[in-house]
């Protein structure tokens, strides 16, 4: 069976993916202005500081919007439809693109509280996903 397209970690994102492998969900927090950001970047997109720390996020959030996907976008998703593409607003503020799992895809609603869960796709890559809280 075809593999799904997998991220190739690079300088700015290695810490994120290695934490995910240990089932820790980390995001960047700015030491200067205190804001969080996702995805990982070289500068704080709020104050442009480069003093960014990795902090463990609460893993809580709400569904900001979503789509239920009925068509495999890639051979690696064959047999996995329907699945939920979601934008989750994290408790810390940033929004991230992810999947909502462990529920009926048609039961997902905007505003629904969700928590992080980890999908060990390969030995190298674990994807943080979300399930109903």
């Amino acid at each position: 069976m075809a593999q799904i397209p997998l991220p190739r970690p690079y300088q700015d994102t290695e810490a994120y993916w290695s934490a995910a492998k240990e089932h820790r969900f980390v995001i960047q927090k700015c030491r200067d202005c205190g804001e969080h950001q996702f995805y990982p970047r070289g500068v704080c997109s709020h104050c442009l500081s480069s003093a960014l720390d990795w902090v463990e996020a609460s893993g809580s959030g709400t569904v900001y919007s979503f789509s239920v996907n009925y068509r495999a976008p890639h051979p690696g998703f064959a047999g996995k439809t329907p699945f939920v593409l979601a934008i989750v607003e994290l408790a810390e503020g940033p929004r991230m693109m992810t999947n909502i799992v462990d529920c009926d895809p048609e039961s997902v609603r905007i505003g629904m509280p969700v928590v992080v869960t980890f999908d060990d796709v390969t030995e190298e890559i674990t994807l943080p996903k979300f399930r109903p809280a």
């Binding site: 397209p5 997998l6 919007s65 890639h74 699945f83 593409l85």
Partner: peptide, 28 residues
């Protein structure tokens, strides 16, 4: 196409086509 850049945090979740990328705006 290899997964990198701004695709890094979307493609593995199945976000790929224009329709998928825009659908949350429509639903919202």
């Amino acid at each position: 196409v290899p997964v990198d850049g701004d695709n890094l945090h979307s493609r593995a979740y199945g976000w790929q086509s224009a329709g998928q990328m825009f659908a949350p705006s429509f639903l919202r």
